[in-house]
Amino acid sequence: MINEKIKAAIQKYSDELTELRRRFHREPELSWEEFKTTAFVCEYLESLGISFRKTEPTGVIATIEGGKPGKTVALRADMDALTVEELNKDLPYTSQVEGKMHACGHDAHTAMLLIAAKALSEIKDELPGNVRLVFQPAEEVAAGANEMVKQGAMEGVDNVFGIHIWSQMPTGKVSCSLGPSFASADLFTVKFTGRGGHGAMPHDCIDTAIVASSFVVNVQSVVSRTIDPQQPAVLTIGKMVVGTRFNVIAENAVIEGTIRCFDPKTRDHIEEQLKHYADQVAAIYGAAAEVDYIRGTQAVINDEYSAKLVQTTAAAAFEDDVLYVEKPTMGGEDFSFYLDHAPGSFALVGSGNPDKDTEWAHHHGKFNIDEDALAVGAELYAQYAWAYLNE
C-alpha cells in the first residue's frame, strides 16, 4: 500500500515544502482574490510538466496522468485567507498584508498539495490511473467548491480526498472519522419592523429592542426543546443591531446568526422553526418580521470505505499511534459539495504544539502551525492517491 518512493520524495522536498507554506503565508489573498496564488500554482505545475487549466476567476484544476489505465482520484486544497490581523509580528514569515492573514491553514494545504503533486509526478508511469489536483478558491465564503465543480473539477472522478490542518490536535496525528466530520453551516438574518418614537412615550410605539430581545432569548428553545438531544445542533446569534439613539425607541432591529447540524431533517426543522418563532414573537408585540435564510455548506459525511482507507494508509505510512479520534466539529467546510459527485473523505492533520505556541484556535490572530505537520499532510495526500488507485 505504501510507496517508498513517495516517502523519500516528501522527505527530500521537506525544506521546499516549508518555504512554500511561508511564501503563501506572507502574501495572503482573500476569497475570489487569489490571483497571485493561482499564478504561482500554475507556474509550479508547469515546471513539473503537469497539465492544468486556470478556473475563473481564480483556482486551478490539474491532472497527473498515470502510465497505466485505472480510476481517477481527486485531491483538494483550498487557498484563501481571512480578514484577520496577524498578531504574530515576530515571525520571519508574518503576513505582509495589513488586516489579512492565513488564520486557518489554507497556506499549508496549498503547499502540501504542491509537494504531493511533485512526488506523484515522479512516479506517474507507475500510477494505475489519474490524480486530479484541485486548488480551490473561496472556501471561507462557502462558494469555491460549488464553482470548481461547475468548472469541471469532478468530471470523471471516482473518489475525492481532502485534508485540513488542525491546531486542536497534536502535531502529526491524523483523524478521519467514519460518518459525520463537519457540520452544515447556514446563515440567517431576521429583520423586525415596529414603530419608533420618543423614548419618553413608549405607549405610542412598538419597540423592536423588546421584540428582538425576546426573540434572542426564546429562539434557543428550538434546539433545546424541539430537537432530539441525540441530534447535535447549534443556533448562534452573532450580531444584533437595534436603534439609533439613547432616547429614541427603535423602529428597526436586525439580527444575524448561524445554524450548525449534521442531520438534513434537523436542518429543515430548524429553518422552519426559526421562521415560526420570528413571526410569532413579532405578532405578540404588533411588529412585523422578515427572515432571510441562506443555506451554506452541507455536512461533511465521510464515506466508510474512504475513511477506513485513510486510516490504514496513515497507519502504514507513519507509526501505528498516528491515528487520533477527533470528535466531529460544528465548523463548516464546503468540501461537502465534492461528496455530492463522488464518495470520499476529509481528514484532519494535527499541528498543535504547546512548545511552539501553535494551539491557538483557527481564525484567531495568533493562529500558526507547527511546520513539522506539513510533511505528514503532503505524504498523506500522495500515499492516499497511490493506495486508492492500487485498490
Rank of each mutant, 00 (worst) to 15 (best):
T83W: 08
W32C: 05
H164Y: 04
E359C: 15
V281K: 01
H102A: 11
A81T: 09
A382V: 09
D355N: 11
T226Q: 13
N368Y: 09
A250R: 04
G197V: 04
S351V: 02
A361P: 00
W32G: 01
A119S: 12
G199E: 11
S14T: 03
P28K: 04
V241E: 14
V174A: 10
V157M: 07
K89T: 15
W166H: 06
E256W: 02
H164K: 05
D90A: 11
F337M: 12
A250T: 05
E126Q: 12
K5A: 14
F24R: 00
V376D: 07
P128V: 00
A317D: 08
G156K: 07
Y338V: 01
A77K: 02
E139A: 04
E85P: 05
R295A: 09
R21Q: 09
V222T: 02
P28Q: 08
D334V: 03
K265G: 03
I2R: 11
C261I: 02
P264R: 12
E371V: 01
Y285H: 09
K54Y: 10
K68A: 00
E139Y: 01
K71R: 15
E29A: 10
S184T: 01
D158S: 14
G352D: 07
Q231K: 15
A142L: 15
A74Y: 02
E272K: 10
D292N: 12
Y285V: 02
D334P: 01
K100L: 13
M101H: 05
S121F: 08
V300L: 06
E147N: 14
P57R: 06
H362F: 04
V131L: 01
Q383K: 04
S167M: 08
T72F: 08
I259T: 11
M1T: 14
K36Y: 10
E290C: 04
K118V: 11
T312N: 13
D321C: 10
Q11N: 14
A143F: 03
K173Q: 12
N146E: 14
V248P: 03
E251F: 02
P232Y: 10
T55M: 11
L113V: 12
C261S: 10
S51K: 14
Q311M: 12
G350Y: 10
N218G: 15
G179D: 04
R53P: 02
S177L: 13
E46V: 03
A382T: 09
K308F: 03
K124S: 11
A289N: 02
K356P: 00
G70Y: 05
S221P: 00
T189R: 06
L114W: 09
L91Q: 09
E256R: 05
F346E: 03
Q273M: 15
L133S: 10
